[in-house]
Simulated assay, not measured.
Amino acid sequence: MIRYSLRCEAGHEFESWFAGAAAFDSLSKAGQLACAICGSPRVEKTLMLPAVRPGRKAEARAEPRSAEGGAPAPSLSGEATALEQTLAAMRRHVEENSEYVGMNFASEARRIHDGDSPERAIYGEAKPDEARRLIEDGVKVAPLPFLPRRRAN
């Protein structure tokens, strides 16, 4: 596994794990990468700092730092931040009030828009080009800031 620092065309920076350099390249070429913040499909790798671990004694004394070496790294075992709580509430609302249609999202959204399927709230997954065509055709869709639970690790 390899972790890359990524940046979208809007300047949002985030990190993601890949099976290897070839996995990043193939996902990028297939248009299956998107910004974790805005959903932009134009994502590129940025300069990464190597993760060099200090000796055991130094590690015990040091306060954990972010990858950039600036502010202390967030604690994964601490309380959720306001943003994390908001995202969790959004996820609960979507899951409780919508139907998960999986990879059939684009076709089902189009059927609802055309009146061929009953109107209801749905969520699922679509390839970037499918989502782009829906938007171009006037189908109201928006990216969610989380993966469906079926796909989350």
Rank of each mutant, 00 (worst) to 15 (best):
I2D: 07
R3Y: 13
Y4G: 02
L6M: 07
L6T: 00
L6P: 01
L6Y: 03
R7T: 10
C8N: 04
C8Y: 03
E9I: 08
A10Y: 08
G11V: 08
H12V: 07
E13P: 00
E13Q: 13
F14A: 05
F14M: 05
E15A: 15
S16I: 02
W17R: 11
G20R: 08
G20L: 06
A23I: 06
D25N: 08
S28F: 01
L33D: 01
C35L: 03
A36S: 14
P41K: 03
V43L: 11
L49H: 05
P50L: 11
A51D: 15
A51I: 12
R53Y: 11
P54D: 13
K57C: 04
A58D: 13
E63I: 10
E63R: 09
R65H: 11
R65G: 06
A67K: 13
G69W: 03
A71D: 12
P72T: 10
A73I: 04
P74E: 12
P74V: 12
S75M: 11
G78K: 04
E79W: 00
L83C: 06
L83G: 09
Q85S: 13
A88Y: 08
M90V: 11
R91I: 04
R91F: 04
R91S: 07
R92S: 15
H93P: 04
V94E: 06
E95T: 06
N97T: 15
S98T: 14
M103R: 15
A106T: 00
R110G: 01
R111N: 12
R111V: 00
I112H: 04
I112S: 00
D114C: 01
G115H: 06
G115A: 06
G115M: 05
P118Y: 04
R120E: 06
Y123F: 15
E130N: 03
R132W: 00
I135T: 11
D137W: 00
K140T: 11
L144R: 02
L147F: 12
R150Y: 02
R151C: 13
